[in-house]
Every structure is written in C-alpha cells, then in structure tokens.
C-alpha cells in the first residue's frame, strides 16, 4: 500500500476528505500511452476512497471497444482491466453519446456497462466534480 500510494500515510494526511474525481479519457487506446497510464492513476485512486468517475469521449470511447487485438502492434491489450474496475469499487463509467455515435459504436460494442450521456449532460457532470484529470 505504501509503495502504491506514493508513501502517503492516508490515516494522517488524506482521510476524511472525499472529493469527486473525474478521469476524462479522450485518446485512442494505442498509438499513445495516455490511455494506459491514465488507467494506472485510476487504479491508484481507488486506494484513497474518493468518489471516482470515468469519462470516455472523443477517441477515448475506443478504449472500451470489445475485441481489441493488439498482437500485431506488439502492445499489451489492457482492455480487460476496465472489467476489473468494479472490484476496486469504481463503478461510475460515462460515455459521451455524440463521440460514441460519431464512431459508429453502440453500448453493445463496449466491454463494460456504461451510462451514456449527451455532451450537455456531460458538461453538467464535469461541473459537479472537484478534480478533473484529462488524459
């Protein structure tokens, strides 16, 4: 725990404060490392007992696409990790409707159940957050 949380003694420094964190995923899963390293922050955030939401928009919706085959590009397919988030009590996953539809995707194409929000609803969601980290 100490190593994964950066040596922070959560009992002293951060306990009691619960903030609303939104991790906004906007990039395709491969091609750049943003999606993979963003997921690493999300997993660590679970150790801090915060109110965590994940947002997928723009090419970020591809991160949740079923049937990712990465062998040919020599990268690890990390999409199964999104299915494990539930085990970390990270259950609020939101996908922007316009981004999904623009890419010809539906909820059935995604590896996890999500809540689909219009861009207007997404704006409201983001407005409610204390911390928005965009990757």
């Amino acid at each position: 725990m100490t190593e994964s949380t950066g040596g922070i003694d959560m009992d002293e420094e951060s306990s009691g404060t619960i903030k609303k964190f939104a991790f906004v995923n906007r990039k395709a899963p491969y091609g750049t490392i943003y999606a993979l390293e963003s997921l690493e922050v999300v997993l660590i955030s679970a150790a801090f007992d915060q109110d965590v939401s994940l947002v997928f928009m723009d090419d970020g919706v591809y991160e949740l696409k079923k049937g990712q085959g990465t062998k040919a590009v020599g990268m690890k397919n990390f999409s199964p990790t999104y299915r494990a988030l539930e085990g970390y009590d990270i259950e609020k996953l939101y996908v922007e409707k316009e981004s999904m539809e623009a890419r010809g995707l539906t909820e059935d194409d995604l590896v996890v159940p999500v809540e689909v929000l219009t861009s207007e609803e997404m704006a409201t969601l983001m407005d409610e957050q204390d911390v928005v980290l965009s990757f």
Binding site: E3, S4, T5, G6, G7, I8, E13, S14, T17, K19, F21, E40, V41, I44, S45, A47, F48, Q50, D130, V131, V132, L133
Partner: peptide
Amino acid sequence: GLGQLVETGIQADRV
C-alpha cells in the same frame, strides 16, 4: 508514486 497526484487532488484547491 501516483498516489502523490491523487493526494494533490485532495489537498489542493485546484489541479
């Protein structure tokens, strides 16, 4: 560790 980023989110007024 990455926890330092999350902790900044908790402690700071703005990130």
